[in-house]
Design a protein around this nucleic acid. Structure first.
Lengths: 193, 193
DNA sequence: GTAGTATTGTGACATATGTCAATTGATTCT
DNA sequence: AGAATCAATTGACATATGTCACAATACTAC
C-alpha cells in the first residue's frame, strides 16, 4: 500500500471500526496532492468536490464579509478539511480553503465517496461519525466565541488549540476570534507579563 | 393512527423519503407529552434520553456561564429539540431545555431510536439528514453571531426568525445574541423610528 | 546583503456596548 | 381589583474594543 495512506487509515480506524478489506476498497480512489503555501483547495463559487485528509500542513477556511476575510476554521495534520455545506448539498461554496503552510493531502471525491457508501456501510457510518463530531465542535465554538470577551476567547484558543497560536499569524487568529489584530496584540503582551 | 402523529409524519417524510409502513414501525414508540410553561425537558447533569418533536409550543436551550443563563437555541412548532451532544454520546448534558410556552411534544427515546435503526435503514438515514442540517445551521449561526455588531445580529435574527422576536422576551433574545438586554432595548427603539 | 514588503506592536482617540440605578409598564396571584 | 412580582425602558457613566497612524521588527526576493 502507498505509504501515504497509512496515516489516513489510522485516522479512519480510530473513528470507527473498519476491516482491512473495507478500507482497501478506497485505495484506488484516494488521490495524493501537494499544495503550496498560499494556494487554494477551494474557492468561493466552486462546488466542493472532495474531502481532504491533511497529512502535512495547515489550512484556513474563510469567507468574505464586506470585502474582509473572516477566518472560520484552521485545520492541520491528521484532520479533514472541506466545505461541509457545499460538499453535502452540491452547491457553490461561500468559503475559501487556503493552505497557509506547504501541505500534502489525501483527497477523496464526492462521487467516489458515494460509491464507497454503496460498497460497504462502514463508509456511510464513517461519514455519520465525522458529521456528529463536526456538530459538537461547532456548538462548542459557538459557546466559546459568542459569549466570551476578547481575552477569554484568546485564552480559550490557547488552551484548546495551542498549536494554532504557534503556527498561525496574529492577524488570522484575530479574524478567527472576531477581534482586531491590535487587540490580540495587546492581550498577548499583557499575558506575557 | 393517533392524530397527534400526523404532524411528525409530515415532518419526517419532508426530510427523507419514507414508506408508510416504515413510519408505522415507530408508532408504538412515540410518546406524547404536555409540558407546562417553565417546565424542563432536560436539565444539566441529566443524560438526554429522548428527542422531542414539537407539535405546539416554544422551547429554549441554555447553559450556565458564571451563574448566568446563556440561551443557545429557540425551538418551536414543527422542529425537533434535544441536546445533541448528550443524546449521541450518552453523557450528562451541560444544557437545559425549558418550555417558555405551554407545549405538546412527541418524543422518541434513544433506545427505541436504536431499535428503529435496526428495523429499517431509513431511520438511520433520517438521523443523518437531521445531523447534517444541524451542522449547517450551527455554522451559519457562528458566522452570523461571531462577526456582526449587536445591531446586525438583532436584524439578522429579525430577518431569519421573525417569529422568535415576537414570541420570546427581550432578555432571552439578548442572551441569545450575546448582548445586554439594555442594548437590545436601545436597538429596538432606534429601529422603530 | 540590501531593498522592499508584509507583519506586528504601541499610542491616542473614537465608539459601541456593558453596568448600575431609577422609572415605567406588564403579568400574575390571591 | 390591588398587591406583588417581573420585564422593559431610559439616562449617566465606565470600560472594552475598534480605528488610525506610525514605528519596529520580521520575512522575501533579487
Amino acid at each position: 500500500m502507498n505509504p501515504d495512506f497509512q496515516k489516513i487509515k489510522s485516522y479512519i480506524t480510530n473513528a470507527i471500526q473498519m476491516d482491512e478489506d473495507v478500507f482497501g476498497l478506497a485505495l484506488d480512489y484516494f488521490v495524493v496532492k501537494e499544495i503550496k503555501k498560499g494556494d487554494f483547495l477551494l474557492k468561493e463559487g466552486k462546488v466542493c468536490h472532495q474531502i481532504a485528509y491533511i497529512e502535512k500542513g495547515l489550512f484556513r477556511t474563510y469567507f468574505l464579509k464586506d470585502g474582509n476575510e473572516v477566518n472560520t476554521c484552521f485545520c492541520m495534520e491528521d484532520s479533514i478539511t472541506l466545505s461541509h455545506k457545499s460538499f453535502v448539498n452540491r452547491v457553490a461554496s461561500t468559503e475559501y480553503i487556503q493552505a497557509i503552510e506547504d501541505a500534502k493531502v489525501v483527497t477523496l471525491s464526492y462521487d467516489n465517496l458515494i460509491k464507497l457508501y454503496q460498497l460497504d456501510y462502514a463508509w456511510q457510518s464513517l461519514s455519520n461519525v465525522l458529521t456528529e463530531r463536526e456538530c459538537i465542535r461547532l456548538s462548542e465554538r459557538i459557546n466559546a466565541m459568542s459569549f466570551e470577551t476578547a481575552k477569554e476567547k484568546y485564552l480559550h484558543l490557547l488552551e484548546k488549540q495551542p498549536e494554532i497560536i504557534q503556527r498561525v499569524s496574529i492577524q488570522h487568529i484575530a479574524s478567527y476570534i472576531g477581534v482586531s489584530r491590535e487587540t490580540v496584540s495587546r492581550i498577548r503582551s499583557k499575558i506575557l507579563l
